[in-house]
C-alpha cells in the first residue's frame, strides 16, 4: 500500500536523522558543542559536570562514550586535547613536544589514546608520562609524543603513537589532575597547562 510505504520511509528517515545526530554529538565528545560546564584552555578542554548529578543528558552520553567511570571534579579533573596549540588535529605521523611546569594537583599524568579511545599498541608498552616519571629540570618538564621511529632524536621522555604509515590517524591526549587544587575547578580556563607543539611530521 502506498501510505504504508510512505510511513515506513518517514520512520526510517526520522530514525537516521535522530540517532545519527545524537551519535555525531556523543562521539564528538565533551567539547564538540560545549554543553554544560565545558571549558577550554588552549588545546585542552574539560567538562566540570563529568560524574556530577547536575550533568546534562549530553554530558552523560559523552561520558558514557569517552570516559565511562570518570570521577567527579573534586576528585579528578580530566582535560583532553584533540589538537595541538596551533589548532591542528593531533596525528600519529607527527611528533609533538609537551612541555610545562608544576600543575595544581597532588598527582598528574598525560596519556595518549587512539581514535577508538583505547591505549595505542607500541613495542615499549609506553602510553603516558606522569608527574613521577617525567624528567624535571628547574621545575620544568618536557617530553615527546610521536611515531616510534622518532624516539631516537626526540627531546625528553618519549610516548609512542603507533604510526603505521600513510598520513597517520588521529589521536588524543588526556591530562588527569588527581586531587586538584580548588583553583582547577574554579577557573579551569585560567590554569597554565602544558603546551603541545608540533615538531615535525613523517
Amino acid at each position: 500500500m502506498k501510505l504504508a510505504g510512505k510511513l515506513i520511509a518517514a520512520l526510517l528517515v526520522a530514525l537516521a536523522l535522530g540517532v545519527g545526530s545524537a551519535w555525531w554529538i556523543v562521539d564528538g565528545g565533551l567539547g564538540r558543542l560545549g554543553f554544560g560546564a565545558a571549558a577550554q584552555n588552549g588545546a585542552w578542554h574539560t567538562n566540570l559536570a563529568i560524574g556530577s548529578p547536575a550533568a546534562d543528558p549530553y554530558t552523560r552520553a559523552a561520558v558514557a562514550r569517552q570516559g565511562l567511570l570518570a570521577l567527579s571534579k573534586s576528585e579528578t579533573v580530566y582535560f583532553t586535547a584533540f589538537s595541538d596549540d596551533s589548532g591542528a588535529a593531533l596525528k600519529t605521523n607527527c611528533a609533538y613536544v609537551i612541555s610545562g611546569g608544576k600543575l595544581p594537583a597532588r598527582w598528574w599524568s598525560i596519556t595518549a589514546y587512539g581514535a577508538d579511545h583505547y591505549l595505542i599498541p607500541n613495542r615499549a608498552d609506553k602510553y603516558s608520562a606522569a608527574m613521577n616519571t617525567v624528567t624535571w629540570t628547574n621545575e620544568r618538564f618536557l617530553f615527546t609524543v610521536g611515531p616510534e621511529e622518532e624516539s631516537e632524536s626526540a627531546q625528553g621522555d618519549f610516548v609512542p603513537t603507533g604510526y603505521e604509515g600513510g598520513s597517520g590517524a588521529s589521536f588524543s591526549l588526556t591530562l588527569r589532575l588527581y586531587n586538584p587544587e580548588p583553583e582547577v575547578a574554579a577557573a579551569p580556563q585560567n590554569l597554565t597547562l602544558p603546551t603541545i607543539t608540533k615538531e615535525r611530521c613523517r
Binding site: 526520522a14 530514525l15 535522530g18
Partner: peptide, 25 residues
C-alpha cells in the same frame, strides 16, 4: 509529512541521548 518526520527525528534524538548512558553501563 516533512513536519511529522522532523518531529519524529527529534523524539528519536532525545531518546537516543537519554538511553545511551544506561545502555553502555
Amino acid at each position: 509529512w516533512i513536519a511529522g518526520t522532523l518531529v519524529l527525528a527529534v523524539l528519536f534524538h532525545i531518546s537516543a541521548i537519554l538511553a545511551y548512558p544506561y545502555a553502555v553501563t
